[in-house]
Each structure stands twice: as C-alpha cells, then as structure tokens.
C-alpha cells in the first residue's frame, strides 16, 4: 500500500521537473517581455504545485495506515496538510504576482513583438503575425 504513494509522489515530482525545464528555457529564450512572463507564470506555478504535491503524497507513504489510531495516525498527517496549504498559497499568490508584474510592464510602455519590429518570429512564414501594426497605441495617437 505504501509503495503506491511513493510511486505516485515520484511521478508528480518528475512531472514538475519537466514543467520547470519548459519554464526555465522559455524564460531564457522567448523574444519578448510578455512571452517570457507567460512562460514564467504558467510553468513556474504548475511546477511548484506538482513538486510540493508530490512530496506531500510521498510523505503519506510513511504514515502507519495498518493500525489506525486517532492519537498516533492523525498527527502524522499534519505535515502533508501543511504542504497542501503551501500548494493553495502558491496557487493564489503566483498568478497574482504575475498579473501585477504584467500590469506594471504594460503601464511602463513595453512594446510587444510585432511583425514590423523585424523580429525573428515574423520572418519564418510559420508563426501568426499581428494584423494591427501598433495595437496598443490607439489612445496616445489622438492629438
């Protein structure tokens, strides 16, 4: 029974590492602030959730399930519950901080990559190209 928890926990931790590979190299190689933010926000949140959840499930393997006793089995579940609380906190706080940083970047006037910028994404004929050359400059064009 206990090795099932161990195997599920190890699978979750390895999945989290795979998602962190995507997040790290997306953060390194994407061409734009917004795309980097996309990789960092999504990949980072999911990777943290999966690794902490995997550790919590792996800890369930050490709990003595055979002789269930209210005074000895339930206190062993305290640490997995705390790890679950960390999961919930990460699930709330990481998208919130991503949103705040994205908002700050947009108000700073960081331009997204477009086709007219002469970037590498536009030239290969494979990726989608924005139709409006300056979609974020409508308000400031009024003179």
């Amino acid at each position: 029974m206990s090795f099932v928890f161990t195997i599920i926990g190890a699978i979750l931790v390895v999945l989290g590492l795979v998602f962190f590979i995507g997040a790290a190299f997306g953060l390194l190689r994407f061409p734009d602030f917004y795309t980097r933010m996309h990789a960092a926000g999504k990949g980072d949140t999911l990777c943290s959730l999966l690794i902490v959840l995997g550790v919590a499930v792996g800890l369930l393997a050490e709990v003595d399930w055979t002789h269930f006793d209210w005074h000895h089995t339930v206190p062993q579940l305290l640490v997995p519950l705390k790890l679950l609380a960390i999961c919930v906190f990460i699930m709330v706080s990481s998208p919130a901080s991503t949103h705040a940083l994205m908002d700050a970047g947009f108000d700073d006037g960081i331009e997204p990559v477009t086709a007219e910028g002469g970037n590498a994404l536009a030239d290969d004929g494979f990726h989608a190209v924005a139709g409006d050359p300056e979609p974020y400059e409508e308000g400031s064009k009024i003179e």
């Binding site: 953060l27 602030f33 980097r36 933010m37 960092a40 980072d44 960081i110």
Partner: peptide
C-alpha cells in the same frame, strides 16, 4: 521588470 520576473521564479 524582466529581472524582477527572474527573481520571482
């Protein structure tokens, strides 16, 4: 802000 994103990660 790019640096801040890296620090956050």
């Amino acid at each position: 802000i790019d640096r801040t994103v890296g620090v956050n990660v």
